[in-house]
Amino acid sequence: MSLKTPSATPETALGHPKPRRPAREVLHAPHGGLVVVLVLVAVFTAVQADSFTTSQNLLNVLRQIGVTAVIAAGLTLLMTAGGMDFSMGSNAAVTVSVGATLLHDGRPTSVTVVLTLLLATLIGLVNGLVVTFTRVAPFVATLASAMLFDGVALLVLDGESITIGQRMWALGNSNVLGVPYLCVVAVLVLVLTGLAMRFTTFGRDAFAMGGNEHVARLSGINVPGRKLALYALAGALAGLAGLMLLSRLGAAAPNTGGLQLQLTAVAAVVIGGTSLTGGHGTVVGTVLGVVLLGVVANAMNLLQVNSYYQYVVTGGVLLVAAIINEFQRKSVPGH
């Protein structure tokens, strides 16, 4: 009886390991595809527009992506649990309109902040009740809510713009150690979300629910209670994003926030690697997705791309990033 051994390759025969391919290693690294696309877009824009790397422009980008990042953080946790809330941008629009009205009428800032956050949380809770106890698909229920809340925001404003003067100006325009307050708030929200997903029972329950809700229920997880908490939290974060947007703009106007803001946040979360079907989500990927969207939007403005082409270019970049990220994610063991 003879034993056959695998033939040695030239590399293994000489005792040398197989040479690595740096490009493949980068793409196989966590979120490597997103990082590559982000670097390419940033380098191209920096070469074409000198103002891209100025401190004023970078601070402007950070302020712009702060609002999206807060909504995206709530979406990451909710989508990981198998849920979806398409009304967060519209919830933010309601917060902007109600907050601006209260401040314009002379209400104290602290009272306005508390009332608007409570209202936004209640809106999220109502979405959770509908999704949890009526069995209506989250996509359908929250998309309907989005249209409803967009209309509510228009009714509150009565089709007019409302300015708030210098109220909340510091939050939207001041910096701490050179970093905008809006960015600091967004980072805190993202860090807390990431820690909750990784180290708390609440976060582990979200992954379990997204993986298999029936099994999660059999394992003792209070699925209805967790769903209500997740949607209420998403509503609260939408309200916070609305207040951040109001502080940055200093006014509320028709179509501020709304579905466009929501779609941007959803795109950031999805291209960041969070599964639409639940069970998989990452805050780091969401951060990269938010930054990529912000850089692409800023690049379009700096390069003075015709508005007719901006959606085409932006959508193309996002599609390429999503495809690369999906291939990279499938190449990682366990995905």
Rank of each mutant, 00 (worst) to 15 (best):
residue 2 S to Y: 12
residue 3 L to Q: 12
residue 4 K to L: 13
residue 5 T to H: 12
residue 5 T to A: 15
residue 9 T to Q: 02
residue 11 E to P: 01
residue 13 A to I: 05
residue 16 H to E: 13
residue 17 P to G: 13
residue 21 R to I: 06
residue 24 R to L: 08
residue 24 R to Y: 03
residue 27 L to M: 09
residue 28 H to F: 12
residue 28 H to T: 14
residue 32 G to L: 09
residue 32 G to W: 04
residue 33 G to Y: 03
residue 33 G to R: 05
residue 35 V to N: 12
residue 38 L to S: 05
residue 40 L to N: 11
residue 41 V to R: 10
residue 47 V to C: 09
residue 47 V to A: 12
residue 51 S to I: 06
residue 52 F to D: 03
residue 53 T to N: 15
residue 55 S to I: 09
residue 56 Q to S: 15
residue 61 V to K: 00
residue 63 R to T: 13
residue 65 I to C: 07
residue 66 G to A: 14
residue 68 T to A: 07
residue 69 A to I: 00
residue 69 A to N: 02
residue 71 I to C: 01
residue 72 A to F: 01
residue 75 L to N: 03
residue 76 T to G: 06
residue 78 L to E: 08
residue 79 M to F: 11
residue 84 M to Q: 05
residue 85 D to M: 05
residue 91 N to M: 03
residue 92 A to G: 04
residue 92 A to T: 04
residue 93 A to I: 00
residue 100 A to G: 06
residue 102 L to A: 09
residue 104 H to I: 04
residue 109 T to L: 14
residue 115 L to H: 03
residue 116 T to G: 10
residue 117 L to Q: 00
residue 119 L to E: 12
residue 130 V to C: 04
residue 131 V to F: 14
residue 134 T to R: 00
residue 134 T to H: 05
residue 135 R to L: 15
residue 136 V to R: 03
residue 138 P to R: 00
residue 141 A to Q: 07
residue 150 D to H: 05
residue 152 V to P: 06
residue 158 D to W: 01
residue 159 G to M: 08
residue 166 Q to H: 10
residue 169 W to C: 06
residue 171 L to T: 02
residue 171 L to W: 11
residue 172 G to E: 00
residue 179 V to Q: 09
residue 181 Y to G: 03
residue 182 L to K: 04
residue 185 V to N: 11
residue 192 L to A: 10
residue 194 G to V: 03
residue 195 L to N: 12
residue 196 A to S: 14
residue 197 M to D: 03
residue 199 F to C: 08
residue 201 T to I: 14
residue 201 T to D: 06
residue 201 T to A: 08
residue 203 G to S: 07
residue 204 R to Y: 11
residue 207 F to E: 09
residue 208 A to Y: 00
residue 208 A to T: 11
residue 209 M to E: 07
residue 210 G to F: 06
residue 211 G to H: 13
residue 222 N to H: 15
residue 223 V to L: 15
residue 230 L to F: 13
residue 232 A to L: 14
residue 233 L to S: 13
residue 235 G to K: 10
residue 247 S to N: 11
residue 248 R to A: 08
residue 248 R to W: 09
residue 249 L to V: 12
residue 252 A to P: 05
residue 258 G to V: 01
residue 264 T to W: 00
residue 265 A to T: 03
residue 265 A to R: 01
residue 269 V to H: 04
residue 271 I to G: 10
residue 276 L to H: 06
residue 278 G to Q: 03
residue 278 G to F: 02
residue 281 G to R: 04
residue 285 G to P: 10
residue 286 T to H: 07
residue 288 L to E: 01
residue 289 G to N: 05
residue 290 V to Y: 02
residue 292 L to Y: 00
residue 296 V to K: 01
residue 300 M to D: 08
residue 301 N to T: 09
residue 302 L to T: 05
residue 306 N to K: 09
residue 307 S to M: 07
residue 310 Q to L: 08
residue 310 Q to N: 09
residue 315 G to M: 00
residue 321 A to W: 02
residue 321 A to G: 01
residue 322 A to G: 02
residue 325 N to L: 11
residue 330 K to V: 12
residue 331 S to Q: 11
residue 331 S to I: 05
residue 333 P to M: 14
